[in-house]
C-alpha cells in the first residue's frame, strides 16, 4: 500500500458515495447514465469474484464489498426506486459496442487462460470504457449538474492516482501488471477533456455546459 493507491481508493469511494447521495437526496437520477452504472456493477462483479477464492486483507475485502454493494444500490435507485426520473432517451449509448469487443479482447489478451483470470481481465478492460455512456449523455444534453461533475472528477482521479501507484510499485517492488497499466492509461485519457472543463469551469464556480 502506498499513498497513491490509498488516495486512489478513497477517491473511488468518494465518487461512489457522492453519486448515491446525489440520487438519494434529490430523489432523482436525472443526468445520470444508468448504462454506465450497470457496466460498473458488471465490472465489480466480474473482478471481485476472488472474494470467494482468496483473502488479501481486511481492507481489501471491505472495500470490495462496499464497492459491489454501492454499485448495485445505485443501479436499483436508477432502474427501480427513482425510475420515473431516469432520462432514458438521452442514455442512448450502445453498450454492446463496448461489452462485445472488450469480452473478445479479454479472451485473447490475458495473463492466464482461466475463467477467473479472464473475468478479471474483462473487468479491467470494461472499466476503462464504462464511463463512455455517461460522457456521451453529457455531450448529448450539453450540460451536467455540478454534483455530477464532482462525481466524475473523483472517479477519473482514482485511476489517475493508480497510474502513480503503478510507477511507485514498479520502482520499489519491481511489480507491474501490463494489462492494468494500459487499461488505466486508456481510462485516464478518456477523462482528459472532462478534467480540462472541470478545472476551467466548475472550479471557477460555473456550471458545466457545452457549446451547442
Amino acid at each position: 500500500m502506498n499513498i497513491f493507491r490509498l488516495t486512489g481508493d478513497l477517491s473511488h469511494l468518494a465518487a461512489i458515495i457522492i453519486l448515491l447521495l446525489k440520487i438519494w437526496k434529490s430523489r432523482s437520477c436525472a443526468g445520470i447514465s444508468g448504462k454506465s452504472q450497470i457496466l460498473f456493477a458488471i465490472v465489480f462483479t466480474a473482478r471481485y469474484l476472488d472474494l470467494l477464492t482468496s483473502f488479501i486483507s481486511v481492507y481489501n475485502t471491505s472495500m470490495k464489498v462496499i464497492y459491489i454493494g454501492c454499485a448495485y444500490a445505485t443501479v436499483y435507485l436508477i432502474y427501480a426506486k427513482f425510475r420515473a426520473t431516469y432520462d432514458g432517451n438521452h442514455d442512448s449509448f450502445r453498450v454492446e459496442f463496448l461489452v462485445v469487443p472488450v469480452g473478445g479482447l479479454a479472451v485473447l489478451i490475458n495473463h492466464t487462460f482461466s475463467p477467473l483470470e479472464i473475468l478479471w481481465t474483462f473487468s479491467i478492460y470494461l472499466e476503462s470504457v464504462a464511463i463512455l455512456p455517461q460522457l456521451f449523455m453529457i455531450s448529448k444534453t450539453g450540460e451536467a449538474e455540478t454534483i455530477t461533475t464532482h462525481y466524475l472528477f473523483c472517479l477519473g482521479m482514482y485511476r489517475t492516482l493508480y497510474l502513480f501507484n503503478w510507477v511507485w510499485r514498479f520502482y520499489f517492488e519491481g511489480f507491474f501488471d501490463m494489462i492494468a497499466i494500459v487499461a488505466g492509461l486508456v481510462q485516464t485519457v478518456l477523462y482528459c477533456d472532462f478534467f480540462y472543463l472541470y478545472v476551467t469551469k466548475v472550479l471557477k464556480g460555473k456550471k458545466l455546459s457545452l457549446p451547442a
Partner: peptide, 10 residues
C-alpha cells in the same frame, strides 16, 4: 512481472 491470480489491487 505479474503474479497470476494474486490481484491485490481494487
Amino acid at each position: 512481472g505479474m503474479r497470476v491470480d494474486e490481484h491485490d489491487e481494487l
